[in-house]
């Protein structure tokens, strides 16, 4: 079973590696989107899927990364790749700033603080107009070749998934899960839960920052409403939940399935789409709280590493 899954994964990776050589521009950009969602849903999984602390403002890290990348390219003349990678620095700084006070507390404080964070960062970005271009946004040079972005975004998706695998096979990962299961028991058993949560939160902020920078470069134009939409957070959440929170392949599965559905069925009707996502969250929470991978793991006794 495990070997089969491994071979399947390798084959898929191989296929994806050579995809830009022959696929149409449409397929490539669609795949880039899927990569982006894998990285984002996987990152959300690291804090919320593992520890149960729900982050309703994860798009803030994405937006901050997008602005960092865009500014480094346009103002400082950086190459797009290091500029995007640098997006993780302010994202992590923001995570530290919010996480330190809010993650020490139990209960829903963190969730609500994250719900407000996105609005606040967006308001700040709009306010400091001279620096960020305010509501009129930032234009970046048009990209000449899409393939490098494809590989960079793919790299981010793989990196997040490998990081998740590394975490889930470590004591750190088990500790995060124990916080989700029973924080008081975990604390009483000698686990420094505040510190663990903060680490998880920092890790979960890194890749949205990087992916935000890549997104800015890829779309050549960013503005506050475009990079801080609540919809992005909603999408991360539903993909991770649907695929299976706290699992390695759950976010991947969720990102692929929902991206395809979204593309085929309802992308053209924004509000219908959002309403369906809302209903889907309700349905998954009530009917399938462990998500697809969680159900498979339990039914077929698969190890946690899948």
């Amino acid at each position: 079973m495990m070997a089969g899954i491994l071979w399947l994964l390798l084959a898929v990776m191989g296929g994806l590696a050579v995809l830009p050589l022959f696929a149409s521009g449409y397929i490539i950009s669609f795949t880039i989107q899927i990569f982006m969602w894998i990285a984002l849903a996987g990152s959300w999984n690291l804090i919320s899927g593992f520890t149960g602390y729900v982050s309703f403002g994860h798009v803030a890290f994405f937006g901050v990364g997008a602005y960092t990348g865009a500014l480094l390219v346009t103002q400082a003349g950086w190459h797009w790749l290091p500029a995007s990678l640098a997006g993780c620095v302010p994202a992590a700084a923001l995570a530290l700033l919010i996480g330190y006070p809010c993650l020490r507390l139990k209960g829903p404080y963190f969730a609500i603080a994250m719900l407000g964070l996105n609005e606040v960062v967006r308001a700040l970005v709009s306010y400091f107009e001279s620096f960020t271009g305010g509501g009129s946004g930032i234009s970046l040079p048009p990209i000449l070749s899409i393939a490098p972005v494809y590989y960079a975004m793919g790299g981010a998706a793989v990196a997040v998934t490998l990081l998740t695998y590394r975490i889930i096979t470590s004591r750190f990962g088990l500790r995060l899960l124990s916080i989700r299961e029973d924080e008081i028991a975990a604390e009483t058993m000698g686990i420094n839960t505040s510190l663990m949560k903060l680490y998880a939160f920092l890790l979960s902020a890194l890749f949205p920052g990087i992916v935000g920078g890549l997104y800015a470069w890829y779309s050549s134009y960013i503005e506050p409403l475009g990079v801080f939409p609540l919809l992005t957070t909603i999408t991360m959440i539903i993909m991770c939940l649907f695929g299976g929170k706290g699992t390695v392949l759950g976010p991947v599965l969720g990102a692929v399935l929902l991206s395809v559905f979204q593309e085929l069925v309802w992308a053209r009707f924004l509000f219908v789409h959002q309403a369906i996502f809302g209903a889907l969250i309700v349905a998954v929470v009530l009917l399938m709280p462990r998500g697809i991978m969680g159900v498979l793991q339990e039914r077929y006794r698969l190890p946690r590493t899948v």
Partner: peptide, 16 residues
């Protein structure tokens, strides 16, 4: 249920 469930559930209802 754990907090995660009620937060996500009411969030979903709100979006809907």
């Amino acid at each position: 249920a754990p907090e995660l469930s009620s937060l996500l559930l009411t969030f979903g209802i709100s979006i809907f």
